[in-house]
Design a protein around this nucleic acid. Structure first.
Lengths: 339, 339
DNA sequence: CCCTACTGTGTGCACGTTCACACAGCCGTA
DNA sequence: TACGGCTGTGTGAACGTGCACACAGTAGGG
């Protein structure tokens, strides 16, 4: 298998030769330092002449700093396609890193093959730190990061690592309790939940919040477990609930996408929302305002989550000691028409 | 501003010292070559002892090959949030690159600041090639890529560069003509279009296809121009059309998201679809099956577009001469209920 | 006149890796 | 004995940077 090398490009040596000075002087023109006016002029002319573009990778090797931060999205399949949240987190992180002149590079992990390659990439010196979203407790990435002491920040925290690695998240349990309480307060009697992603802290905490809000009325049959936060899961989950309890009159969906799927299923079943059934979601994503009726939901500040995660990385890169590992962002409840 | 260096990590030198051999022998253990059994054993023991992880960035510098390919998403704001297409293209590209053991790194360009930084990153030696989606004719990225002769592939082709840089796309004009013809054939008399992204080839070609399908019946008033392919633009565009021509009975929307927005507007205006107005979209994205009624649309093979773009890069990296610059993927029309 | 300070420049080395080369020892054959 | 081929190892250089250091020249102050 032939692996041809790319064509040679101009380096500082070429500039030095063309301008009749030494590499050191060229370096001083590029990075600041004492340099005479005529030398500077000659070098600047030589730079455009030879078409020099700096090799940042070589600088990164020497400086042990690449000025790049990885954004690792685990299991993004349904996420990128169904859940606008991860896109918003990404854009929020990118904006914050951009202000500090750092390059964000997103890495996608779909398969175990991806997982290993990304782990190699993270440990290979290409990035100074990593933002990790939607990790689960035993993802190998976590080991790699803590073994290497790579500056990192989690969006949502896997329970076993909360003390060692900084994270930013939301109070999933509290928000779930708050929005479910509203269903209770408006007189709903048989309230169910479509619970997703119970292998993650976010999914588990939302379920716990729901349980604490319904209190003694909690009925295991009224919890439909589905794998993902996506629309299809909402359809499946709602069918399950209708089957188990035809008299259901309230639903807390673990995400807006799920709520949208549930809404469609209710429509097909001839139930009207919010008259027959009240339904609330989670995220306040683009889904929430596109359903009919619009969703009451918990606003997840996705952009801010990304921005704060970026700050956590930047502060570690500056050598700051982070006083507290974790940080939770406020999640206002948004009342619309679905409950 | 202090920029502390990260802690030193074990290198091949450390392994060599611990195993009592030279760096060359260590390299041969890692990369293959003649090495005695006892030396190999000693070195492998030393590797786990010192906790060695290879510095891929240093290898990349020496080899002039990073085994990484950039995925550049231009103006992703509404795209990542509203348009599932770009996510699917990304996943398709990642899967193909993954099979060839290449790391895909996605770069987001939202601001001119991003644009410059990404250009630096691309030219800095961090990646071997770049996949560029939704570029416009005069994006600076294009200059950087062609100046550097960086192996590249475009998804959708800016008209001025079609001959020099490989691309993969779809026949936007042909598909638009085909699906619009169906509206004509079913007896619609006043057919409008919500046209978006007219600064890109995709937007322009879809408009041209529409024009050729309606033929003499073309009426400029029945074309509503909107900036983006997103839901909000669909709402705005449909309002415009209803205002200009209350008797409108057919609409070609330049994307499914736009069609969804238009559908919502029609619902609010009390028009029934497809009885009063027939509407067709473009993309066959997740939107298409979530609207009520489901959308008739043009299936855009997003995953395949990403995969083919990845192949175009990989073949250039292997040194293959690409026989033909551009390639168009088939776009079947999917008939559902909206027209 | 010497010491110090400041400007301006060149050289050597390091970052961590891989590869080309040299070379040593061994064996078989001319 | 001399030669060539094979296995196994060490050394030096290079990839393209940036920085520490050395050093040369000038100027000012004691």
């Amino acid at each position: 298998m032939p692996q041809p090398r790319p064509p040679k490009r101009a380096t500082v040596h070429d500039i030095a030769a063309a301008a009749g000075v030494s590499r050191g002087t060229v370096s001083r023109v590029l990075n600041g330092g004492y340099v005479s006016a005529e030398a500077r002029a000659a070098i600047e002319a030589a730079i455009t002449e030879v078409g020099y573009v700096p090799n940042t990778a070589a600088r990164a090797l020497k400086m042990r700093r690449s000025e790049a931060v990885a954004f690792v999205a685990l299991e993004p399949h349904s996420l990128f396609l169904d859940d606008p949240n991860i896109g918003a987190i990404m854009l929020g992180a990118n904006a914050a890193l951009s202000l500090a002149d750092h390059q964000m590079v997103s890495l996608v992990v779909e398969s175990t093959r991806d997982m290993e390659r990304v782990a190699r990439y993270l440990s290979g010196g290409f990035v100074d730190g990593a933002i990790v979203v939607s990790a689960r407790a035993h993802d190998p990435i976590i080991r790699v990061i803590s073994d290497l002491r790579l500056p990192a920040a989690f969006v949502g925290h896997p329970p076993d690592l909360s003390r060692t690695i900084p994270y930013v998240g939301i109070d999933n349990a509290g928000s779930a309790r708050e929005i479910t309480s509203r269903l209770v307060a408006t007189g709903r009697r048989r309230i169910g939940m479509i619970a997703a992603a119970l292998d993650r802290d976010s999914g588990l905490d939302r379920l716990n919040g729901f349980r604490s809000a319904v209190g003694d009325a909690f009925d295991e049959d009224l919890v439909a477990e589905v794998p993902h936060y996506d629309y299809g899961s909402g359809v499946k989950g709602m069918r399950l609930l209708l089957e188990r309890e035809p008299a259901i009159d309230g639903v807390f969906a673990a995400s807006d996408a799920i709520a949208a799927g549930a809404l469609e299923t209710l429509r097909e079943a001839g139930r009207s929302v919010p008259t027959d059934v009240g339904i609330v979601g989670f995220d306040d994503s683009t889904w929430a305002v596109r359903t009919q009726p619009q969703l009451s939901t918990v606003r997840q500040p996705a952009k801010e989550l990304g921005a704060v995660a970026a700050q956590l990385i930047l502060r570690q890169l500056r050598g700051e000691q982070l006083e507290t590992a974790g940080q939770l962002l406020p999640t206002p409840v948004v009342w619309r028409d679905s409950a």
